[in-house]
Design a protein around this nucleic acid. Sequence first.
DNA 1: GATCTGCCTTGATGCAGATCAAAAAGGGAA
DNA 2: TTCCCTTTTTGATCTGCATCAAGGCAGATC
Lengths: 249, 249
Amino acid sequence: MSVHREIRTQMQDCGDCPIRHRAVCARCEADELAQLEQIKYYRSYQAGQTVIWSGDKMDFVASVVTGIATLTQTMEDGRRQMVGLLLPSDFVGRPGRSYAAYDVTATTDLVMCCFRRKPFEEMMGSTPHIAQRLLEMTLDELDAAREWMLLLGRKTAREKIASLLAIIARRDASLKQPRTAATMTFDLPLTREEMSDYLGLTLETVSRQMSALKRDGIITLDGKRQVTIPSMDALMDETGDDSDGGYLV
Amino acid sequence: MSVHREIRTQMQDCGDCPIRHRAVCARCEADELAQLEQIKYYRSYQAGQTVIWSGDKMDFVASVVTGIATLTQTMEDGRRQMVGLLLPSDFVGRPGRSYAAYDVTATTDLVMCCFRRKPFEEMMGSTPHIAQRLLEMTLDELDAAREWMLLLGRKTAREKIASLLAIIARRDASLKQPRTAATMTFDLPLTREEMSDYLGLTLETVSRQMSALKRDGIITLDGKRQVTIPSMDALMDETGDDSDGGYLV
DNA sequence: GATCTGCCTTGATGCAGATCAAAAAGGGAA
DNA sequence: TTCCCTTTTTGATCTGCATCAAGGCAGATC
């Protein structure tokens, strides 16, 4: 089936972009793909660069291809809270909204696949798959946000750190290593300050708790950023989470 | 146009149910409405009753018709965090998930409009409007969750209380009073304990901060539950929020 | 190699909110 | 009315994390 093959070939350059990948391409809708191709473009950002400021005009929606971006809210007096961590395939922006609601920042080098907003919205109207796929992704993000609310509202500093490490480790594991490895090693993509913005702590507390987890043998640090987790189970014991919790389908 | 009129008539009994109201009925899609009618039923709950427990099988999705429900997460040791406050027209449950992820509780007497999940999902596949409407609603909830993350992570106890009061007051205002009233009065639908679960505080702290706001003339209490706000501006000054913040379109 | 600069760690101290405890205020029911 | 029970308030004390303040370390620049 040549259309199928053609799409597969074109898919390469878009990485994990969910719009093409899952909503469109998985169903081999060549027309939709062609349409999307026309309104699509790529943008790259260096680590630390700001993608867009809260309140700025935003005439695109996008999905992360490679790298990590963050969504942050800032209060007038400078207090900051991270409200989203965007990994490859995550979606940024919102159909029907023309201004950014959050600061979007690249924490690593970042490539995004952008779609001009207006034509994208029009396409959504005529292409049910896209709205359905977006709905699924948004519901996942809502679940993640609610898990984070529990963390912010009720967990101790140590539990917060352990939870963050577990999330990063789990994501990394699904990308790289088979699920077998008892020991796992990864690079922290966040500075201590970014971690503190995510966890609702100060960077000093983050640093102290990292040291404490190290002292207690839950983690090993190689340099400031490389983390080794000897036992994922031991880490999970520190998160305060239910040990099972696997009912989410 | 008789179809239109018929739909309007049938709408009455479903209150603010967004599925019929906005996604379906607003477009006068009589077929969809007929389909929805077949898979729909109502359920009532008394104040305090649990609608469903986290982890329970959930073979329906629903929307709140009247009353208020809450979504709560509980940790093994009993720490609780409310992660959602469901008002009339809000949606509960998730297409594609057969188990509840949160405890759902009626905080006031509650009527819900339920749809059997499987047929609802099938309908979503064939009826684009519904997925699009659900997407919109879910994006709104995601924004609300992210605002709540800022509150949980970075606001002081006093700011948290003021923010909650402001949210309830604003909702109430849009239902009842014209936007003109400088003074506004409403009943708190939550106990001190529920407020504390929502805000990530203890009930003692909630009580103390309510007393403090009263002492400072920001609010007046008549009994435990009826709140009067002499000046909405004065209350907003206590929330820590940007005074404008009106860029969200 | 020396110096700089941006992270990160560690220490000392303070305070907001938690915890523990008890009294007060409602609000039904009899 | 009185009693009982739940919810709320208030008080005393404790503590986890924030705040303030030095250093330490590793990678860049000269």
